[in-house]
Amino acid sequence: MIEVKDLHKGFGGQEVLKGISTKFHQGKTNLIIGQSGSGKTVFLKSLVGLHSIDKGEIYYDGERLASMNDDQRKSLRTEMGMVFQGNALFDSLTIEENVIFALGMFSDMTQDEMTERANFCLKRVNLENVNNKFPAELSGGMQKRVALARAIAFKPKYLFCDEPNSGLDPKTAIVIDNLIQEITQEYNITTVINTHDMNSVMEIGDHIIYIKYGIKEWEGSSEDILNTENESINDFVYSSELFRKIKAKL
């Protein structure tokens, strides 16, 4: 479980996150939703320690992130997997080398064992026969799946995904969403996903928090979101014509 208490973060005197508190539970897909520029990515990067926070506390399974020394932080990071918005695959490495990169750095596995693990992870995300290709040779959806395979290669306890289906067609986006949900349940990991895609919210959102202008405006499940009276989130959810029509029919 990840617990966040009163998280504040700003850049150059402008406060981006204004005191967010929440809990992300194990075995659940936790979604952070909000408009572009609402602070979702800053929040996610603060959670994984890529941004130092100005105020507040982050706890990983009860361990305070700020109290950890360098070795403890490094050890925690080997328990994290992250899928970045632009995939962040290493262009100079093959797909297999990308997937086993962290294993090569931190495990005592032999090359054969690592290749076996890479094959397993790639198969898990429905990719085969791509081991020797380079990221640039794959489509956006395939790259996203490789990024997911890389994120789970080290059997993480925490999985973070920043806009995992941005730039993908609706069908591929659903495939990626379902994969993330299956992996979360299969390995009982704490998954935190940044998204502004309402399809993802309805498909895989076990626990959702809505951020607006750096403030947590609403928190609940995908069922709650359809029945909430909160005006702010209703504005966001029903900003599309399609969802307004669906609501009218319900």
């Binding site: 050890s75 990071r77 994290m80 970045f84 632009g86 962040a88 695959l89 290493f90 262009d91 750095m105």
Partner: peptide, 13 residues
Amino acid sequence: VSEQIDALEVMGI
């Protein structure tokens, strides 16, 4: 800019 350096950092490298 393509977040590859961030990816290394998240891996603990």
